[in-house]
Amino acid sequence: MFEAKLQQGVIFKKIVDAIKDLVKSVNIDASTSGLSMQAMDSAHVALVSLKLNENGFKDYRCDRPITLGLSIENLSKILKCAGNDDTITLQTDEEEPSSLKFFFENQQASKISEFSLNLMSLDSESLGIPDTDYSSVIQMSSAEFSRICKELSSISETVEIETSKESVKFSVQGDIGAGSITVKNNQSDKDVDRVDLQIDQPVKLTFALRYLNMFNKAVSLSSTVSLNMSEENPLMVEYKIDDLGSLRFYLAPKISD
């Protein structure tokens, strides 16, 4: 028996919206500790990793670990039927489920929707992601980071991110010209302006902006985003989801030949 009830169902809708351009089908692994999901894009350049802790759910029960293979496109169609204020419950009684039940309830419990989504059997191609002690970590407004990526992607497909003790510089070079945006440490009490840099070692890494723009669809999940980098390592972009868990994106760097 597996049942997970999320009080703020809108969070689940936002998570699916944030990943639907990146991955087509995912395995959600349910266990006693909560839900986890890891999936790569078709080019194996980017990876999304979701962890939702059981104690972030209104009700959570998972008698034994199960894997739920879902088509993101079909999941989106079902979630469209859930209101932003609804609770969302996922449920199945089977051990090897062939479908997953969804219940959407409005606040007054006066409207209850029930859907059953057919499950897929997907081969799990998961990667072992080592716990990395990143040498450069940037905490900043997710809206601001999203804006920087959008603006710079009109000049080039590729952005170079260079960190130093007191600032992070986003540089682009394209056919029309070049540009850079430098953001300094800023302990402002206004969320949108605050920038925390923890730079043990400066890094200079290059990434494809089209993936960063896809990751930034998660901006509605958290007002802050963290960029975690070490030389010769994929970038890890993390959106923490209050009281529930986190949505992480990994992006392999580009190297100049």
Partner: peptide, 14 residues
Amino acid sequence: RDIQKDLQSFFQNI
């Protein structure tokens, strides 16, 4: 020219 790496160059398949 920048060459896009893939994640398998950094993370092991498990």
